[in-house]
Computed example of a mutant assay.
Amino acid sequence: MAAKKDRLLALDGLRLLCALAVAAYHLGMAWSVDGVRTTTAYLPQEVNSVLIYGFLGVEVFFMISGFVICMSGWGRSPRSFLASRAARLYPAFWACVLLTTAVMTLFPLTDGIPLPHDLTAGDIGVNLTMLAEPLNVPYVDTVYWTLWYELRFYLLFAVVIAFGLTRGRLLALGAAWLIASVVIPGDVPLAELVMPQFAPYFVAGTTLYLIRRHGPSLPLWTLLAASWVISLFRVRERVLFANPGFPVPIWPALLIITLAYTTLLLIALGTTDRWNWRCLAIGGAISYPFYLLHPRIGFTLIRYTYDRTALPIPLLIPAAILTLLTTAWSIHHLIERPVSPLLHRLIAQSTARPHLETTSPGR
């Protein structure tokens, strides 16, 4: 079966929805206004009970990543694949690291936000590589932890590309990865590669793309169902780990993850192929820089405005999100769009140089 069109605007819209969910959770739940009272004290309990599940946007991000990486990696060499990933991730990331560092420097806060304030120039330099986690360097912003998971997935996928990307190899990888994520303890070195907590989401994403590309089949349905079941157990662990100071039922998280699987399956089956609204493409483009910017800068915007105006927190949170969306749009247009193609060519074109050097002008 031939692959359907590559650009899926429904995925772009889903990306932005996930980023907004994570931001609503962080800015509404996960910090203190004055170092004593958390923001939950300023919001109705009914709102808090919804916002707490915003962290699940990360799980859905990883599912989308599995789908998109599988789609974009088809027909590429390992170098071309890694060049496309670097060009996609690094320009906006560099801009967001530097902008967040500037905010930390110009508007320091000493309480209410659990983030480091004494980063050195070397720490910031390491952050710019996306390797702060393995090099044991503090993050400029805590959400960068997800990028280390993405990088490991990209490297694993590049290995598969090197052997040749086929349906059978990806099925074998998905099955082996799921089994390893269940049997390998999280505290052994191999778990750094297996990523047990989030493996089922990456596997689900790649499986859903295989369904899109090759059509449904019993092996693919089986792998997707296994990913879903393991995801439910992993989500349960994540909810139990949350401790917001009020009861957090598990069933809404299970429902949200099941809804995410259903939504991505509908996209894979082509249900949303006719969606061509430009706003979805814009949402997808700004979701990544928005996600990188939102915690530290969002905290600071809300805190400084609150200290000086005492405006209500329920008003300041959406105002901060709107400001960050505008900033993310500027980064996309001013940084990502011009720099990403240059970086891609810089990484990818060196593969052509040996050929050029062995061919004389007269031949």
Rank of each mutant, 00 (worst) to 15 (best):
L265E: 13
Y144R: 13
V137C: 03
T271A: 15
A30G: 12
T358H: 08
R88A: 14
E150P: 02
G75D: 00
P91C: 10
L147V: 11
A253E: 03
A348S: 14
R345Q: 15
T300W: 05
I267T: 09
I64T: 05
H333D: 12
V188I: 12
T326W: 10
W148Q: 13
L224S: 07
I113Y: 12
M104K: 15
A319E: 06
I302L: 09
N127T: 08
R15G: 12
S360K: 00
A86K: 00
A87R: 02
Y154P: 01
Y291K: 02
T110L: 06
Y288F: 15
G125H: 02
L223H: 09
S181Y: 04
A242Q: 14
W145C: 13
T166Q: 04
S181T: 04
W74D: 15
T326P: 00
A30D: 13
L346W: 10
I302V: 13
W94F: 15
P247F: 10
R76I: 01
A281W: 01
T110N: 15
L259K: 03
R303W: 10
L224R: 03
G168Q: 06
P247W: 05
E150G: 13
H117G: 11
A121S: 10
R152I: 07
P219C: 07
L240R: 09
Q45S: 15
A2R: 09
Y139R: 09
C96H: 04
G174T: 01
L14K: 01
P108K: 09
H26K: 07
L178F: 08
P78H: 03
A2E: 12
D307Y: 14
P91A: 07
V159M: 08
V160C: 08
L324Y: 10
L269F: 02
I302Y: 06
L135K: 06
L151F: 14
V182G: 07
T358E: 10
P249M: 08
Y144M: 10
P312M: 11
L293C: 12
T129R: 04
R76Y: 02
Y288D: 10
G54D: 02
A253P: 03
L135R: 06
Y288G: 10
A319V: 06
L343M: 15
P219S: 07
V194H: 00
P295R: 11
P216D: 14
F198H: 11
W145M: 13
A121W: 08
A268Q: 00
T207R: 02
T351F: 03
L98C: 12
